[in-house]
Amino acid sequence: MSITVTTWSLEQTSPDDLRPAGHFPAGVRIVRAEVPSPEFSRFLYTAVGGDVHWTDRLPWTYAQWSGYLARPGVETWVAYENGTPAGFIELEAQDGGAVEIAYFGLIPAFRGRRIGGELLSYGVARAWDLAERWPGAEPVKRVWLHTCSKDGEHAMDNYLRRGFRLFATKTDEEPGGTAPGPWPGAHPAV
């Protein structure tokens, strides 16, 4: 069985494009994971993406995770609610002064609590100033991402509200099936 998946690519071309969400919910803080940790990054990847079919990194070995996370310009920013990881945004510096928001999302139990807009706002601001943290990096000229019809129902609206503009759309057929989830019986999608 296959499913039709639409992928949208969005971008900002100036820091002035960012429209912040507003105020952090009480008890929420965002911290950069400065020590590359394949275990922690894989946990975030599966906990956030398990119910929305993130599968591309599931076969990665420990060495692949380590190599990716150690690259200059790769950053993971984690939202915590009262000390518990709630979600993350992963930034990846690219040639030409671009920064991709490689992954962004919340663990299902934390969705619908007004954390996503704040995490995205904060992460986009960190994408725009990423070169300041990486000596020798090109100044950032563009922040971009892609989202798809498998992502959460509010994903596209959040991106548009933060000032992203659509620049490409494509539709593909992908294998269907049950989302892997972080493990059987994990918190269901909201």
Results as ranks from 00 to 15, higher is better:
V143R: 04
L145D: 06
P59T: 11
A109R: 14
V140P: 03
A127F: 00
A26N: 06
D51R: 13
W77E: 01
G87L: 10
G73Q: 00
G177I: 09
A125P: 02
F43I: 03
A189R: 14
Y68D: 03
A98G: 13
T4W: 12
S41E: 08
E81N: 02
A33Q: 15
A33E: 15
F24M: 14
V31Y: 11
V143Y: 03
E138K: 12
W128K: 09
R126W: 03
Y45R: 13
P135A: 06
A47T: 02
T55M: 15
G87Y: 14
A127Y: 00
A63G: 11
E75C: 02
E81A: 15
P59K: 09
T178D: 09
K150G: 04
E34Q: 14
L69R: 07
V74D: 07
H23N: 11
A63N: 09
S121V: 08
T6W: 01
S121L: 03
A98H: 12
L120D: 09
N82V: 13
R162W: 00
L120I: 05
I107F: 12
E173Y: 14
M1S: 15
K150N: 14
G136V: 01
G73K: 01
F164Y: 12
A93Y: 04
A86V: 07
S41P: 00
G27V: 11
G163H: 03
P72K: 01
R29Y: 09
W8E: 03
R162I: 04
A98S: 13
E11S: 11
G27Q: 06
L10V: 08
W183D: 09
S2Y: 07
T46L: 11
A168H: 08
V48R: 01
L130H: 02
T76A: 04
D151C: 00
F110S: 07
E90M: 05
D151A: 10
R113S: 04
E11G: 05
V74A: 02
S149G: 06
G152P: 02
P72N: 06
D56Y: 15
V78D: 02
R71D: 01
A86Y: 05
W54S: 08
A186S: 04
P85C: 12
T147L: 13
E138S: 13
P139A: 11
P59Q: 10
E81K: 15
L130N: 01
D157F: 04
S149P: 02
E153V: 08
A70F: 04
A109I: 05
A131H: 15
R162V: 08
G22C: 03
W77M: 04
E132Y: 10
Y62I: 06
W77I: 02
G117V: 08
L166K: 10
E118N: 11
D172W: 12
F88A: 10
A26C: 00
R133H: 10
D151G: 02
